[in-house]
Write a protein that binds this DNA or RNA. Structure first.
Lengths: 165, 165
DNA sequence: CTGATTGCAAATGCTTTGCACGCCA
DNA sequence: TGGCGTGCAAAGCATTTGCAATCAG
């Protein structure tokens, strides 16, 4: 786990007078062992592989704490389950691009966009706290080659969409 | 109801060979009688005032159809319930600004932002289908005057947030 | 010690669905 | 008349919560 994250977590634990438990340590380790988005259920399964005891409830509760500590951010990818993104510590203002064809999620940062949206916000008399941009896209790969490399893998996960689009 | 919406709806009904029922007509009327966002439950209550018979299930099913017809769009305001936005026909590319203090939602359109995000999308090898920007903000009114006019009204609705932030 | 944390199971809340009946085309 | 649409109640599903036992500090 990156040093900055550990630092921020320590501060949070001290400030809120939280206790260090094996479950929490393990969950945090798993969360920051990769930079991919995940759902509570996916995290639960990954944690279970490390420790067959930890409960779903503890996973949910710890997720809540990490969001509160601003180490994790909830993102809306249009599915019925909430997704969590562990990359906001490294890239505080990144956004997401979701491929409608294959479900792939790409992160991007762009200062111009940030400046532009902040400009709009101030013009309307508000102060930006946080912004989230989701761009739904079509895969050029699919259009040009007739198939998208991520397509099959995604289909197999068979996630239920919250909505038909 | 605006003529363009009626037209689009008629096309959709014909194309999908749907039937016109009193329930659907009433729901559609209520949906487009205002330009405010609403949840399924709020819509159900408004419909019930017109016709005490229509069921929750029919409201949900009709909402699905209207989304499919692209007459309504689901938006994520950070609450546990999905919100529906009836203004995408008039303003196809508008976005939302949500006040953290009072919960007020302001819509905005900005061509510069659209151009900028589309630029990013193409640079990454994708084609924009749809984008949604949510900017969470603080109310300048609250900061300057110590209170925000919408605050009390919002508090009273007491909506549960999907997440603590 | 003492209160924070955990696991379990039950509860919650929004949304979807199976089914029998009714109604539009 | 055929089968789409409806209402009802039950089911689904992700998430939250009450509670008694356990554990960290």
């Amino acid at each position: 786990m990156e040093a900055g994250i550990k630092q921020k977590l320590d501060d949070f634990i001290r400030r809120k007078r939280l206790r260090r438990t094996v479950q929490r340590e393990q969950i945090v380790d798993v969360v920051f062992s990769r930079d991919e988005h995940f759902t509570a259920e996916e995290l639960f399964e990954r944690v279970r592989k490390v420790d067959g005891e930890t409960s779903r409830a503890t996973v949910y509760r710890t997720l809540g704490l990490l969001v509160e500590a601003d180490l994790l951010r909830q993102i809306d990818l249009g599915e019925s389950q909430i997704s969590y993104d562990p990359n906001f510590h490294d890239k505080p203002s990144h956004n997401h691009l979701v491929c409608i064809d294959c479900g792939r999620v790409v992160e991007f940062e762009d200062a111009h966009v940030d400046i532009q949206t902040d400009c709009v916000t101030r013009r309307l008399g508000f102060k930006t706290v946080r912004q989230s941009i989701k761009i739904e896209v079509n895969c050029e790969q699919l259009r040009l080659k007739g198939r998208c490399p991520s397509l099959i893998a995604t289909r197999l996960t068979g996630k239920r969409l919250r909505r038909k689009r």
